[in-house]
Design a protein around this nucleic acid. Structure first.
Length: 800
RNA sequence: GCGGGCGUGGCGGAAUUGGCAGACGCGCCAGAUUUAGGAUCUGGUGGGCAUCCGUGCAGGUUCAAGUCCUGUCGCCCGUACCA
């Protein structure tokens, strides 16, 4: 039976809103559940089916939790600062505030039409002054605690967006926003000292219930390595050449040194260098290379010898030539390395090309052919000779280096400090004043929020300076410390600032005295379950864990970690199996689907498509199948007669409740829905059903298709809202049918399927199996050598 | 290179973790209904007429392998000269 989803969905969305049934109570005797989804960027394009999938998972879980008697916080908000809105504003001249408000209104309307059970009283918008006041507050706290610093450095810069990007924002050497090849540019940069939290972020990961690949990606991104710093004396100058190595045990195998082309010592000791011009030429050449070219250079190493400087091996006293090469980066370690060609691929390639000696110090490989990175006995290494274990050799060498005062154990991270300023308008102003007398002075807490000034032209300056620099009334101010004339910082914070703590604000969105009431934080934290995209694992997830941990360290939040559990949804691909994109023209608009097939169908289909964590292509005909399923459920309500239990369906019901209950917890929504489809196939076969049973069915289906279920629930005289009905219980004993189908095999090959009583013993099962005509025929003339009987599962005769 | 994941019908995908491979849905076929198309309903549907053969490929362990082991091929994601 087709039901009128347009009327039904509208009716229940209004009823839910009027009754306010999805509001979270701040304190309650019920157990609490905080389910979080990544809040959207309210783009002009409106909602995408990907949003629906991202939210539908925790939507089902949150709805189930409410029915299970939890006090549920399932909030939504908008991460609205950022470039797309600003670029739109530049193009159209419409203020980003207006653009943002319009987009948020549209998103809210669209989310409402899908019937998501968000608590709409707790909506946060990162661009509102009462919100970013606290973003700025956290920044000042970090400043106060020495986690903010300023440096002139080579940074990732996007020539198209005219903006500095963090490492996280320029993964793969491309701008995250416009995909333009990024270039290195020397600029004044504000950094957040996230590296100080590297170890803390790494350690706490262990105790968290994150998907294994999420954990792993974070571990790799933080990229902790242990090794040693070694200071090599350089003949003719006073300064030591400091390097970092993970293999101090190979120190006797060093046959050359390599510095990054931009290494500062080259400039400092230019007068000692005989071929400075050649080094300059090489450096300039490297600067021109794109990221792509650099990675292509993997095998074919380039470089130039530094004439006039020569390093001394601190343990052997040998003289070692120094080179510059772009396979050594200024941004990692010390910007210089000791090269051990016998035991490192890159050094090996370089040594071969430049005809440098290759000295074996670890046995086990063939250094004539390639570098050997494995374990083995130490040779040619004086006091290390004979040691077979890498760990012991490293310890011994580090000990010697420390005794001699030429080196020490050290740790390095791939993760860099977070470049935190953007030369853009639509972001949180950085609340710092530059005073000629006092230097960098924080804006007093009492003056927060430091508001974005009104302006007409939002375009960034050609030299890459912030648009705010043009607003004199904003720039010119008095120093909060000395009262003298001073200038405000004109850069704004990056997109990721507001989202680094939004989950805290949901807990107390209107508080004006603090970012959230400590008692409420204590009640709601940590987030019990956070679902989002894999693309945020090395950005938002790292950043927000960092901010949260900082807030914990200064006593603002009660938990070390913000999220107890983290899962991720897979992409929805276009019908052609390709990633949805405007240029491919394969984008499915969820609102069209809602209008044509209804929100319930959309929700059920998106969760039925396949494994929630995997990518799956959109298929409209497959979706029609889900519509048919819902229509059939609607039909059952009309057929229902009487109350109580239909004996023939009892086991099926208990089994289905059990499966749906546990599958939802494992995000196996596809099989949960399949189980309910099986159940209605079973009901059709039996041909009769009671009203009580339909009510049970719609209760477990309600988290998926809430509008239809409410309608049926009401029509059958259900009490209150189906959305708040008690989650059906199952009786384990009743999930077992009286008879079970047992496969009977002969030598592992299926011969028959025999119905047996559920509790049959091994002997009874073997006897019943032999009694089956087909089995008997197969056994004819054979001797049974072995009988394998697994109760409830299988009988297998080994016979010849 | 390195790290992780995945290969099952025409398609999306199931499989209680070693126990009837292909649940459920799509598509397809046949029938019903319909002026027709669409929609809906009913039945069938891995391959082969059959003894049988089937989870990328080749071996192995086992009474029993999609699942475990060894080797191999292919695809996807992340990362990228990290010293």
């Amino acid at each position: 039976m087709k039901y009128d989803f347009v009327t039904t969905e509208k009716k229940w969305q209004e009823k839910w809103k009027q009754a306010g049934i999805f509001h979270a109570a701040d304190h309650s005797d019920k157990p609490k559940f905080y389910g979080l989804v990544e809040f959207p960027y309210p783009s002009g394009a409106g909602m995408h089916v990907g949003h629906i999938k991202a939210y539908a998972g925790l939507e089902v879980i949150s709805r189930k939790r409410r029915m299970q008697g939890y006090n549920v916080l399932f909030p939504i908000g908008f991460d609205a600062f950022g470039l797309p809105t600003e670029n739109y504003a530049i193009k159209t001249g419409i203020h980003p505030r207006q653009v943002t408000d319009k987009n948020i209104a549209r998103f809210s309307e669209q989310l409402g039409r899908v019937g998501f059970s968000f608590d709409w009283d707790r909506v946060v918008d990162t661009t509102e002054e009462k919100y970013y006041k606290w973003t700025q507050w956290i920044f000042l706290k970090m400043f106060e605690n020495g986690l903010v610093f300023r440096d002139t450095a080579l940074v990732n810069y996007c020539p198209h967006c005219k903006v500095v990007l963090s490492n996280e924002d320029s993964q793969g050497g491309k701008c995250d926003i416009c995909d333009t090849e990024i270039v290195q540019k020397s600029k004044d940069v504000w950094y957040l000292r996230i590296t100080k939290y590297a170890d803390k972020l790494l350690e706490e990961l262990d105790g968290l219930d994150y998907l294994p690949n999420v954990k792993m990606q974070q571990v790799n991104w933080i990229g902790r390595s242990t090794g040693a710093f070694v200071n090599f004396a350089v003949k003719g100058i006073d300064e030591k050449l400091r390097i970092y190595t993970t293999r101090p045990d190979t120190l006797f195998g060093v046959t050359f040194m390599v510095m990054a082309p931009e290494h500062p010592m080259l400039e400092k000791y230019r007068s000692c260098i005989k071929n400075a011009d050649a080094l300059d030429a090489y450096r300039d050449e490297c600067a021109k290379k794109t990221e792509f070219e650099r990675t292509q250079m993997n095998k074919n190493k380039t470089g130039v010898r530094v004439e006039g400087l020569c390093a001394i091996n601190p343990v052997s006293g040998k003289e070692i030539p120094i080179y510059i090469s772009d396979y050594v980066m200024m941004g990692y370690g010390t910007g210089a390395i000791m090269a051990v060609p016998a035991h490192d691929d890159r050094d090996y390639a370089f040594a071969k090309k430049f005809g440098i000696d290759i000295v074996e110090v670890i046995r086990g490989g063939d250094i004539e052919k390639e570098a050997y990175a494995g374990d083995g006995e130490m040779v040619n290494s004086e006091f290390l000779n004979g040691i077979k274990e890498k760990k012991i050799a490293i310890e011994k060498m580090v000990q010697v280096l420390e005794e001699k005062g030429v080196g020490e154990a050290g740790v390095q991270y791939k993760m860099k400090d977070w470049a935190f300023n953007r030369q853009r308008y639509w972001g949180e102003p950085i609340p710092i004043v530059h005073c000629p007398q006092c230097g960098m002075v924080p804006v007093p807490y009492s003056e927060l929020p430091l508001k974005l000034p009104e302006m007409e032209n939002f375009a960034p300056g050609e030299g890459g300076e912030s648009p705010l620099a043009k607003v004199e009334s904003f720039v010119n101010c008095s120093c909060p410390k000395c009262g003298g004339a001073a200038k405000r910082e004109t850069d704004t914070m990056p997109q990721w600032a507001g989202s680094s703590w939004y989950f805290l604000r949901y807990i107390d969105p209107l508080n004006d005295a603090c970012l959230a009431d400590p008692e409420k934080l204590k009640y709601w934290l940590p987030v019990d379950w956070y679902n989002g995209g894999m693309e945020h694992v090395t950005r938002h997830l790292i950043y927000s864990r960092f901010w949260h941990r900082f807030l914990y360290d200064i006593g603002v939040v009660p938990t070390k970690e913000p999220y107890a559990k983290r899962t991720a949804q897979g992409l929805i691909l276009g019908p052609d199996g390709q990633k949805m994109s405007k240029s491919r023209g394969n984008v499915v608009d969820p609102l069209n689907v809602v209008e044509e097939f209804g929100a319930d169908t959309l929700r059920v289909y998106i969760l039925f498509m396949g494994d929630y964590g995997a990518a799956a292509p959109w298929s409209e005909s497959s979706m029609r199948g889900c519509k048919r399923f819902l229509d059939r459920v609607a039909g059952l309500a009309e057929k229902a007669q009487g109350n109580g239990v239909t004996k023939a369906l009892e086991a099926s019901f208990h089994k289905t409740i059990k499966k749906v209950t546990s599958d939802i917890e494992e995000m196996k929504f596809n099989t949960a829905i399949a189980a309910m489809m099986e159940l209605i196939n079973e009901i059709d076969k039996v041909g009769s059903i009671t009203a009580d049973e339909v009510k049970t069915l719609v209760a477990i289906l309600c988290p998926f298709a809430p509008h239809l279920c409410e309608e049926i629930w009401e029509s059958l005289g259900g009490e209150g809202f189906c959305s708040l009905a008690q989650w059906p219980a199952y009786d384990e004993a009743k999930t077992i049918s009286d008879t079970v189908e047992i496969a009977v095999q002969l030598c592992g090959k299926l011969k028959a399927v025999v119905a047996m009583p559920a509790g049959a013993s091994r002997e009874e099962m073997a006897a019943l199996a032999k009694a089956d005509a087909r089995v008997a025929a197969a056994l004819e003339g054979k001797t049974i050598k072995k009988e394998i009987v697994v109760p409830g599962k299988i009988v297998n005769f080994v016979a010849v």
